[in-house]
């Protein structure tokens, strides 16, 4: 598939991709442009592709109405902790499931896989009761502990396991002969090789944590503690009606940094996944 294409073919491909892009890009474009429209222009019909009037004060209002910088920090540090924690927990578990022989490993792996199958709506009430008992309501603990150790990390463990399975065994054997223990083999040999897979896990995990919506709403109650997706719903007028332009300004600020990170990291990300050889 990697042959050089004829110029005609190239034009056709560009054209096809541009058409396909419309439904992907238009909503985001609308979000961007509407974030600088006065609210009365947002729902004008037909929608304007370019704002008739500009109102950049929306971006300042975001910070006036909510402790938005604080909420940004909350989302960022939670996502960072969750990402690092998941990378540690999942690479260890994935490595063990792939490379270490121990009794019941397959059965335990199946049990762990159950975590992939359970929608968060199903367990939210019991989880709420547990965290209440532990005094962790309106703290960030549930948003950190559950993703690192619970259901959301299972996908990461799965990816890591698939990567380590594909790893050739000779390196480890050599290390064993040199008298290295399991932990050292994992830390000094296997993990450095796993960088691409870890990169993929990191991006998936970060996105998942960054976009988490149901859990923050249930577990957090004071605006100082809110995360970004939850904060987005808080830009309302006196009667619960959404202040769309300000909400969309906040939404834009929520999306752009992640998009920038993706632009920078996407090459590694794609290659990382390519190396994992995600096999069933």
């Amino acid at each position: 598939m990697k042959t050089d294409l004829s110029p005609r073919m190239k034009v056709a491909l560009y054209g096809l991709m541009c058409v396909l892009l419309i439904p992907f890009v238009f909503p985001t474009w609308w979000m961007l442009t509407s974030s600088v429209k006065p609210i009365s222009d947002i729902f004008a019909f037909p929608p304007d592709l370019w704002p008739r009037r500009f109102d950049f004060t929306t971006y300042a209002r975001v910070f006036e109405l909510q402790p938005f910088a604080r909420q940004y920090w909350n989302s960022a540090y939670i996502a960072a902790l969750v990402t690092i924690g998941t990378m540690i927990v999942s690479s260890m578990a994935g490595y063990a499931f792939a490379r270490i022989k121990f009794p019941f490993s397959n059965a335990i792996f199946m049990i762990v896989l159950l975590g992939l199958l359970i929608p968060s709506e199903v367990t939210i009430v019991p989880l709420f009761q547990m965290f209440l008992k532990w005094g962790m309501i309106n703290t960030h603990w549930p948003l950190i502990l559950v993703p690192i150790f619970g259901a959301p990390s299972v996908f990461a463990t799965f990816v890591m396991r698939q990567f380590f399975i594909a790893l050739p065994g000779e390196l480890e054997e050599a290390a064993r002969v040199d008298g290295l223990g399991r932990f050292k083999i994992f830390w000094l040999i296997a993990l450095p090789l796993a960088k691409p897979a870890l990169g993929a896990v990191a991006i998936f995990t970060f996105l998942h944590s960054w976009n988490l919506y149901l859990e923050p709403i249930v577990f957090l109650s004071s605006t100082q503690m809110f995360t970004l997706p939850q904060a987005l719903t808080q830009f309302t007028d006196a009667y619960g009606g959404a202040m769309w332009n300000i909400q969309l300004a906040a939404a834009t600020m929520t999306a752009i940094p992640v998009l920038l990170v993706f632009i920078v990291a996407q090459k590694q990300f794609v290659e990382g996944l390519a190396h994992t050889g995600l096999k069933g």
């Binding site: 927990v89 578990a93 121990f102 335990i108 975590g115 989880l127 150790f149 619970g150 299972v154 463990t157």
Partner: peptide, 20 residues
């Protein structure tokens, strides 16, 4: 090896038992 294996999966397994 078996001990190491259990140690390696312990955080994940305990998490799944507790949170799932």
């Amino acid at each position: 090896d078996a001990a190491a294996g259990y140690l390696f999966i312990a955080p994940q397994l305990i998490g799944i038992v507790t949170f799932v």
